[in-house]
Every structure is written in structure tokens, then in C-alpha cells.
Design a protein around this nucleic acid. Sequence first.
DNA 1: TTCGTACGTTGTATATTGTACAATGTACAT
DNA 2: ATGTACATTGTACAATATACAACGTACGAA
Lengths: 253, 253
Amino acid sequence: MSPVSAATDTPKPNLLELLWRAAPENARGPRKGLTVDEVVAAAIELADAEGLEALTVRRLAQSLGKAPMTLYTYVPGKAELVALMLDALFGSMEHTATEGLPWRERLAALARDNYALYRAHPWAAAASPSRPPLGPGQIGKYERELRAFEGLGLSDVDTDDALAYLLGFVRTAAQDAAQSEAERAASAMSDGEWWEVNGPLLAKVLDVDRYPTAVRVGEAAGEAHASAYDPEQAFGFGLERTLDGLAALVEEA
Amino acid sequence: MSPVSAATDTPKPNLLELLWRAAPENARGPRKGLTVDEVVAAAIELADAEGLEALTVRRLAQSLGKAPMTLYTYVPGKAELVALMLDALFGSMEHTATEGLPWRERLAALARDNYALYRAHPWAAAASPSRPPLGPGQIGKYERELRAFEGLGLSDVDTDDALAYLLGFVRTAAQDAAQSEAERAASAMSDGEWWEVNGPLLAKVLDVDRYPTAVRVGEAAGEAHASAYDPEQAFGFGLERTLDGLAALVEEA
DNA sequence: TTCGTACGTTGTATATTGTACAATGTACAT
DNA sequence: ATGTACATTGTACAATATACAACGTACGAA
């Protein structure tokens, strides 16, 4: 318990208040040396450059020229910081103009814009939940993206479901792509070395009699993609399927 | 460097060797008190009961009646342990018999089996990469699931892409469901309390003039699902779209 | 103009994590 | 019988988020 004062406690800033920058300014005390936006921008820069696991409170404070604990004046904790980063990203996202285009091209552009965002900021794909917190960036994005579904004859509920479905596909594809890149980078082994080490065991264990389909299909896929996994190809394939699936819904309406 | 011996080093067990239990048995020295399978089983039990973040080397060792460092005799590190857990799960997975059913029902059952697996073991959805390591469990699953696509006229490459696409959807849906549950549990706030705290700000900030579509659709979706997000409904919706999308591919062939 | 107090800043400290390392004892190959 | 490979474990370390209290600053009220 604090020594004397207990009446005038500073209320902890709520995540929603933070997202909307609705916290009341403090008149008393020393001036703040930073702003929430500066902290968030530095955090995004750090995560972009070195990944989400390099975004530590210490590193971030250092890049801002402050002591680690200082950041807790601006943000209640790391989870809230990541939420702010996401909302800032959504708010400044590039998006293709699609007015007047057929619906399928509108949705394809929407998907590609989101995919590009996640590919440019891989940490965002990992950190983004299916329903991000309702900040201004997220809501602006939601509003804009919903409008791409206008005129399709879908109910509001179906529209919401369809958008979430499309965005979920994009997020997963981007996550998979980022992860496959990260694995490749972390393995510190060329494909040749990998086969030299693991090839003999794999050859013994991948019995064609036991796993006839798996071996045949796996080999065909590996040759076609010139590697075990081609994320961009997977995105393209999935996007077509996803749009076909939504087309069936649209035709019903 | 070790004091005297340097000639006979124990080679670190490779992940593939571990997955296929292909490590050579050690003749010398004391008997092992555990097996890799026991360690993996205990780890799965712990993760099932308390989540992936509760699965620490210390807790796992304690549940096995050993000192923490002992586990490193069985597994080179935590990452490999999780890979083993996943492969074990895939190897013991329940699956619906679907021979003779129409292809759409075969794939729907495949999706539901996977969804059930991830819902029963939420840590697996979080830990599972798009292309899990080639252990016996994973390969058996791959072989079986590929066969559900037989007779559709798809090329091997398309079959592989289609299966990955379907499984990716299921994994995402399960992740979202688990996360939405976790948030609800962690918030320690009833929906009523949440609205009491955040309602006033949200009402002010969700301007109908600025976000007309978002507000309308968001409200419709919220009312329809009787909550902000209904994971099971989202899975059902997405599964229909996904199967429709694959149907378009099948019809081409 | 003075002064009390709210608040920004920061050094220190704690609990928790994965795991490296070296000591100890065991059991088989020779 | 004995040397050595190996299982087990106690101790140690680096890194994490963040709680807490000390310190100084600058404004509102007197």
C-alpha cells in the first residue's frame, strides 16, 4: 500500500481507450518524452526488421533511448502493445481501388492486399487473431472490406461470415509462407545437405508398399513445385478455391 | 572440450531418427528409466490438461518423477518434443470410415475428424505447422487422407494441393475456436461487465455515419450468433464454402 | 510566489523459462 | 576385474516480462 495517498489513483488505461487514443491527458507532472504512436511505430520497425521474437521491452526501449520500464507509462503491457501495432498496420494498409470491377476481382484484390500486408509484416500474421480488437484501423478496414461484398445479394450475416472466411484463408496462407521461409533460414542446411543426412533413413522408412499413395503424390508434388512446399503456389491455388466456394454462395442469392 | 575422450562422441539424435524411433540402442551404461513414448505421452497429457504454456520441462519432469535435465536424454530439446507429440497424436487419431460414400461426404468427414482432433487437443492446432515433420503418424495420416480423393479425376499435384487446402482451413477454424474460448476464459469479465466498461466508449466511437456498413453488419452478425463470434458456426459455414470450392475443381476434371 | 502532489522516469529485483556443464554412479564389453 | 560409455541430476546462466519504490519535475492552488 502506498504511504499516504490512496484517494487519487491513476486508473489503468483500457485497451479500447488506448486504441482510440481516448485516455485523458495528464496535466500534472513532468512532460512525456514520447507518444504512444512513436512507441508503436518503433515497435513495428523492430518487428519488421528482426521478427516478433526480437521485439522485447528492453530492445524497444533501447531503440527509443529510454529505460525499459519507461514504456509501461505508455502501454500497460506487451499484449496491448501488439494489439496497437496491429491496429496501426490495419489503419495504414495499402488497398487496391476496385470500384466497378466484377465481384470476383474485387474479392481477389482484397485477398491479395491482405496477403501482401502479411508478407511484408510476417509478425502480423502470427499475432493477428481472427477477430482483432476494435480499434480505428481495424474498423476502417472492416468497413472498406465489407463494401466489396455489396450488390452480391448476400445477407448481412452471410457477408460477415464470408469476409471472415476469406480473411482467414489469407492469414493462414501467409502464416504458412512465413513459417516455411523461417524454417528454411533457420535450418542452416542446404537441401543437398539435408538429403545427405536424412535421405537414407527416409528412403528406408517411406515404404512404397505401406504408403503407396503418399509416396507417389508426395513425389509428384515435390517435383511440380521444385521443392517440398511452395507457399506462393499454395496461395494461388487456395484463392481460386476460396473464390469458387463463395461463388456458389453468391449464386444461391 | 571434454577432458580426455573426444573420439567416441555420442551423435545427437536427429529429429527424423527420433520420429521413427530409429536411434541405435545404447548397450553401455545404466538402464534408461523411461522411454521416449512415456515422455511424449506424459507431455500430451499435460498439454491437454493445462495447455501448451503449462508444458515446461520442469513440470513434465516432475510428472515423470525425474529431474528436469533427465528429459534431455530422451529428447534433444523442447521443439523436438512438440514434434513428437504431434506425430503421436496424428498416429493415434480417430477417423471415420467413409468407403463407398460420395466424395463430398468423404471430405466432410475428413474435415470433421481433423476438427475434432484439434478441438480435443487445442495445443496441437497452435503447434501444428502446415507441413508437419515426416513421422510415421503424419505419413499414415497423409496416406489415408489422400485416399479420400481417389476417383475424383484430380492429378496428383492437385490432390496434394486440395488436401493441404482443406486441412489448412480446418486448422485455422480450430485455432480461432480455441483462441476465442481462451479469451473468454482469461477475460474474467462477463459480457455484461465488458459492456458496462467499454460500451460508452464504443458507442461514441462507432459512428454510424463513418462506418455505416460495419455497424449494420456487425450488429446483425452479433445478434444472429448470439455473441460476437461463434466458432462452431464459422466452421460449418467455412466447411460448406471449402467443399463448394473443391467441387468446382472436381467438375473441371 | 510558494509549495504540495500527481506523475514521468528509472534502478533494482523477482519469478520463470530453456538448457549448458560437470559431477556421480551404473553396468556392460573386454 | 576393470575401464569406459552413458543415465541422472544439481548447479548455473542468460533472457524474459514486469512489480515496486526512489527520485525528480512541473503544474494548480494558496
